[in-house]
């Protein structure tokens, strides 16, 4: 029995894309890379203690003083470990990837939530995106975009976008039928129905999706260090390569601290929306 030449076919497609769109992809990649670099350097201008205070303030607003204190301690610890530059570049990568995922994912989720056929089409695609081992995304990213932060963002977006789509889709589907009927019975346009009823009611669920997207972005940004994304992931990779257990642990702890802070922050926003009183 002959093997179906799947790998060969995919290679051919990738090659074709590279030949035909290579230049424009490169141009896009360069400008996007510049944007990330600028962001990183601007962030570096902010004194470390001010940034910590800003985070603490946000934590206090959405959650309470406990999270604020935890945030100050955690971030000060990262600074003390002298991982501040790596922390900043990881932060930028996570935020940009999450932002792109959310900006693309929520509209797709809205379409899926309102259109059953689109929901049926996109569901298996999302399954595919989420279950494919994340390392595999690194290969085409590497081929098209080379080594650096841009391919890292590309791979991260693919990996982190599904929850934004799924939760938005789910949130809109879960809006009680009678609330949708209220919208229709009072003569709302489809747009009014979306903005005045479906999105506000689905918002807590959508926030849970955003939380998931944030978390997946962080985990993928660390993995993406394999194709040249800087930051904490690069440190972890170096520690693995050189078998420096202590160093790996330091970088690892820093990732955990960021993860906890981002998670509690986004959850806090979600639950303050859920209670309804603003």
């Amino acid at each position: 029995m002959t093997k179906i030449p799947m790998a060969e076919a995919i290679d051919k497609v990738v090659k074709w894309l590279q030949i035909n769109f290579g230049e424009s992809i490169d141009a896009f990649s360069d400008s996007f890379g510049d944007l990330i670099k600028y962001l990183e350097s601007y962030l570096a201008f902010i004194p470390w203690w001010l940034l910590i205070l800003l985070f603490a303030l946000a934590a206090w607003r959405v959650s309470g003083w406990k999270l604020a204190v935890g945030t100050i301690l955690g971030l000060a610890f990262i600074f003390n470990l002298q991982l501040w530059p790596a922390f900043l570049s990881t932060l930028v990568l996570v935020f940009i990837s999450a932002l792109v995922s959310i900006v693309m994912g929520i509209p797709l989720g809205i379409i899926a939530g309102r259109n059953y056929r689109f929901h049926r089409i996109i569901s298996p695609v999302l399954d595919f995106m989420q279950t494919m081992p994340s390392f595999v995304y690194l290969i085409p990213a590497l081929l098209f975009l080379g080594i650096g932060t841009v391919p890292a963002v590309f791979a991260t977006v693919i990996f982190a976008m599904p929850p934004a789509i799924r939760f938005t889709d789910l949130g809109i589907r879960q809006v009680p039928v009678d609330l949708v009927e209220v919208g229709e019975a009072f003569g709302s346009t489809p747009g009014q129905l979306l903005w005045k009823i479906q999105l506000p009611v689905a918002l807590p669920t959508i926030m849970a999706g955003i939380n998931q997207t944030m978390m997946l972005s962080l985990s993928m940004v660390v993995i993406a260090s394999m194709i040249g994304a800087g930051g904490l992931g690069a440190g972890v990779l170096e520690a693995i390569a050189q078998l420096k257990i202590g160093m790996g642990f330091e970088y690892g702890i820093a990732v955990v601290i960021i993860a906890i802070i981002l998670d509690r922050l986004t959850q806090g926003i979600g639950s303050s929306l859920r209670t309804g009183d603003k």
């Binding site: 009680p176 009678d178 609330l179 009927e181 209220v182 019975a185 009072f186 003569g187």
Partner: peptide, 18 residues
Amino acid sequence: FRQEKTAMVFQQFALLPH
């Protein structure tokens, strides 16, 4: 027609929670 002629009251109240 729905805006001007009819208004509806629902069994489970159907108030917008937000």
